[in-house]
Design a protein around this nucleic acid. Structure first.
Lengths: 226, 226, 226, 226
DNA sequence: AGGTAACCGAGACGGTACGTCACGTCTTCAC
DNA sequence: GTGAAGACGTGACGTACCGTCTCGGTTACCT
């Protein structure tokens, strides 16, 4: 049961927008359009990471990308669109949750990743959260990103169920949220100084609660469990 | 042990800046300065709540308050200062946690308050969080606000300890964060549609974890438990 | 030797910025840019003339020109730039000194023009002098304007030399300055009430001094006679 | 016929406002009012000389004088009033024109003084001229200052008449203006680089013109000769 | 010597203008 | 004919002074 070392899966580094992604958009991969898109997205990511959301202006990105302002407006309309594009390409990476052999271990590993992504200086994750408050598109993309993460993390819960660590019928998402939310709350929302023990503690609390059956049963009134 | 009905303690309505608060500042309570300050703060709150952070411009607030732009700049320097002032006056209210007779009940009540504050349309709470990402002063004030809330909520945990619901040595803040964080995570950060069962579920999970001893012992390496 | 009636050559009326001048700048004459420039310059001149330098604010000019403030800032940076542009276009007009047949007559005619320009109500000339004290660019433009005027007026002195009215070697500029300076001194600097005889008197004094050889010889130690 | 060395009589240095001047205002010389007035006027002069007219703000002067803004407004109303007060106290000094033994010499000496006052860095004279374009009170004071200077300089012309250097009936003021105007024109209005020969040349030209009778006869239609 | 009137310090306010930045649109020129 | 370059309208920013006002506290003159 070898743990899979999950390459950093939370956004803390800009990823080169995959060439095939733009290919799907209808253009030839090597075309000027694709190159321009790549340049702009990369510039946007760098700008966001280096100078924060407030410096993520269309002008700055365009200049940084060596592209004219109007080009950016044409293709992304505004900064939110840029961010959404950025996040979307980050969303479909190959991230998989760690497999450490225990629920608590898996959750701790996930939290550790989150901690690192958040405390990174500058932190793309934090910047993206901030951005999500200002751009509906960015918010949507952020939501989609996390939906994907939680979905893929469901296997952690399934493995735990198979091991008998959690009761049958345990719903993954609430558990995962319980495990990860304290980190975001403390670090992102409240800006508390990072506490190295936080990932483990939050993971342990969620695992204990899960074992005690806190996350079984029909989640929200039969609504989709997401 | 009658439950104390806690008047909404999370910011979802602008409070009239207490007259006596400004009186302490050395000026006459009824003076023009005090009146101007009250007008501006009220206008800022209304503007924030009605049109969101992005519409919270100094110009708009000033006009709404019937006050000149430069006056606002003089006293608050920028929007962040306005928000900080707003939050600071919200922070020293008389909020006390509910006392329902059980830990889970108390936490559920608290979460219920949060849910209501967050889903209120428009939501001051959400707006303030958004603001905290853009103004250092607002962030500081938000932190102070929550520090106060958690501090006062410590008695919930103490009562639970007295009732034997949690092991001795249970540290309040991590427990409280575990109970409340999922709401913020889902509703504020991820923008998930409100789930009426969420407050109870998160409270229950935190209570179970606490009972299982997840929040005992020296928190991070003997650091202050905050 | 018919005297050439010199159309008013000292700035007392705003000149429509010549279309061909802006055409040389690379833009189409009828383009929006050219139109905007013309509107703004005209508005600036009118504003200056009607309400004086202190009312020559960017805001006022912009509004008067039916153009946005920032447009003015973009192209002229500040009021000084506007004035400089105004003066520069005034400088390259077709002004030529009068030819009355005598030195004194020519100088008197020139002074008469100056008098009229200065006593005009409102007086663009006076406004421009005032402006030159507050804007380096306006000062430079004013200097250039007068350099041009004096240069073209040199022919007056040459004609006088040819007629034997002044000794050979008479340097034009000091003579011209001696003839015209008293008007500016009295009317512009000291604000004395206009004296109808002043133009003739100053012209006569300068002519007499010139005849007596006051302006011959190497002017300042062989330096350029300007 | 010993030339009287005229102590610099053109404003190029701030004079301590005479104590007795303020005494006339009704207050005791040593009173606080007098002290405040002196402080403010001195501060105004220094500020003007060091930073130019545009920096001569009420705020700056008040701070420099160690006096509150409102005090300045109370007593002088605005910057123009300050300047007028400053100039008025400069006007009644003990300046007397030089007596070199010849008209040309006297005029040259006067021009030399002007040159020095104007090229001084920073030049109070130039600053005052600039100020006179922006404040009616300052303009009035400047006019009064020069009226006094020309009046006292009339004796130069009288002496010249007595010596037979100029025809009888020579009117002083036009002559004096003809002699001095070129300096102001070149140096103050046009900003030409100072030419060391200019004072002598202008003086000589005026003297020659005077000798030729340029300034005799009833000046303009019997109006006051000023 | 004490009362009182003038003056000063302090601070806020409404107001005008400044010069800048970024946005998103629209015109125009060049390829 | 289209698309990059650039200008424009628009709105907000934060700043500097302006001149006014209202307090409260000193001074210093006068009786």
């Amino acid at each position: 049961m070898a743990p899979t070392p999950p390459a950093r899966g939370f956004p803390n580094k800009i990823q080169k927008p995959a060439a095939e992604a733009s290919a799907a958009a209808g253009s030839r991969p090597g075309g000027r359009s694709a190159r321009v898109r790549a340049q702009v997205l990369e510039a946007a990511g760098l700008q966001l990471v280096e100078h924060g959301y407030d410096a993520l202006t269309v002008d700055a990105v365009a200049e940084r990308a060596g592209v004219h302002r109007t080009t950016v407006y044409r293709r992304w309309r505004d900064v939110g669109g840029l961010l959404a594009d950025l996040l979307d390409s980050a969303a479909d990476d190959a991230w998989r949750p760690a497999d450490t052999g225990s629920l608590e271990g898996d959750l701790t590993a996930m939290n550790q990743e989150i901690l690192e992504a958040v405390v990174a200086e500058p932190s793309l994750t934090t910047a993206l959260v901030a951005a999500s408050f200002r751009s509906a598109e960015a918010a949507r993309a952020l939501r989609a990103f996390w939906a994907g993460r939680y979905e893929r993390s469901a296997e952690v819960v399934e493995r735990a169920g198979a091991r008998g660590e959690v009761p049958p019928g345990t719903v993954p998402r609430p558990l995962l949220v319980a495990a990860t939310a304290p980190l975001f709350h403390e670090l992102v929302l409240l800006g508390t100084d990072p506490d190295p023990a936080l990932p483990a503690r939050a993971a342990r609390a969620a695992a204990l609660a899960a074992r005690a059956g806190a996350f079984t049963g029909p989640p929200p009134g039969g609504v989709d469990p997401r």
